[in-house]
Design a protein around this nucleic acid. Structure first.
Lengths: 142, 142, 142, 142
DNA sequence: TTTT
DNA sequence: TTTT
């Protein structure tokens, strides 16, 4: 039975993406994304709740992340949930749930800083864009 | 900054929901949902990949789950991601990511088996329905 | 500014898809999809409301629709909204809003009827599958 | 059969919302939302395509729209598709497809201008927020 | 642990 | 025009 496994997030990057360039020429990027929620508690006080998500982006999306995404930026992410097993340092099996991105879009028309060779940094408004990664078999190098 | 944290799943229940009736009169249900994916590997062989999701449903949705949802049934779930911390038996901090359901819809018009007191089981077609839980502050009794 | 334009539907086909094979070798399918909604009116009576959607599928999805989709079948459709202008028979400009499908998934494991040359019809369970159409420039032959 | 009818948009308001306060104390807001798409045509030229959507918001969301939403602002809208019939000035039956909003979130932390009694306008950063309208029976006053 |  |  075919299923649907879809995640839609709008949030802010917790840090710059970490990008690894793999041997076969492929790339993978990791970053965290915060989605904030507000609600009123019983006393009527406004409370903020932040949820942190682990985002993984492959190939073209990893390269896009490396070039354009910075800590704090607000983005739209569409992807699928994947829970991976790994062994921690004590040899115990642990699980981590990630969102594997299929589409990333930069929101808010926020200017982004492009690093300059001379150490200067000029604010260059980068027109917000949507990037899409066509589905392929994900390599799992970790 | 307000964010969006939305999950949309179509899959099959891995087991009957476990429902707990809390002291304040509230209820919470837990179950797992499998979403299946198919892809062709390099040799062209069709491979199935199953992703398992932990679903939590509160209040009215928990009661709906208790009444209508059974192992194997195909459903639509809409909700939000939440990662919880807990201490494992060795006192170590661990994390689990769940989908807290906002809406559940039964798909496929699949007949559902209602347990009978006399041990017999009659197939009773249950009209597929959508159930929605209005947002409230989630209690976290575990 | 990049935007998001996404539609997610689960409903039943109102009729068999109409498929046109275009000169360049491409195909386009049209069909209607009903999504049903239930609510209680002021007197507490349960009322059903049906919304009808115009679905357009291109290329591989059109061929999938031609092969596998039949009137009455329950499917998941993901796509984008597009409003087209056309001239009615009186030369007036009219508008129609369609959902251009990016992904279609058959739900419910419902057996589908394959027409047979001898006029007989055998129920053949078709394994539910998800089909995806990679984004390209849509041709607009009508 | 229960269905799913869901639309997710990120785009910019084409004009300030038009809000009507109805006799029963309810309100309804209308505005248009542009979602922009970019693609490369056959010659490799980057082409922009804008899709316009008719958004309708009821009750609390209408009041939120009246207070906070302005032409040009980037927002997230979640809602459902609804196609309405009406008679045009020539007595002909026409159809219009709208998105009835269930949730609206302001994106980008963009400051918004609050009209001032003295005719001055001060830029007041409004913390982006998500507003939700609980489902009720929609009144249809037009 | 589901489904086809 | 669908489905339950």
């Amino acid at each position: 039975m075919a299923g649907i496994n879809k995640v839609i997030l709008v949030g802010n990057l917790g840090k710059d993406p970490e990008v690894r360039h793999l041997e076969g020429g492929s790339s993978v990027a990791h970053f965290t994304l915060a989605t904030n929620d507000y609600y009123k508690d019983k006393s009527g006080t406004r409370v903020e709740r932040t949820e942190w998500h682990n985002i993984t982006a492959w190939r073209g999306l990893a390269e896009m992340a490396e070039k354009y995404l910075k800590k704090g930026q607000q983005i739209y992410v569409e992807g699928k949930l994947r829970t991976r097993q790994y062994q921690d340092k004590d040899g115990q099996t642990r699980y981590i749930t990630e969102i594997v991105a299929d589409e990333i879009s930069m929101l808010g028309g926020r200017p982004h800083t492009e690093g300059q060779a001379n150490g200067q940094s000029t604010e260059q408004p980068v027109e917000a864009q949507t990037f899409r990664q066509e589905p392929e078999i994900d390599q799992l190098p970790f």
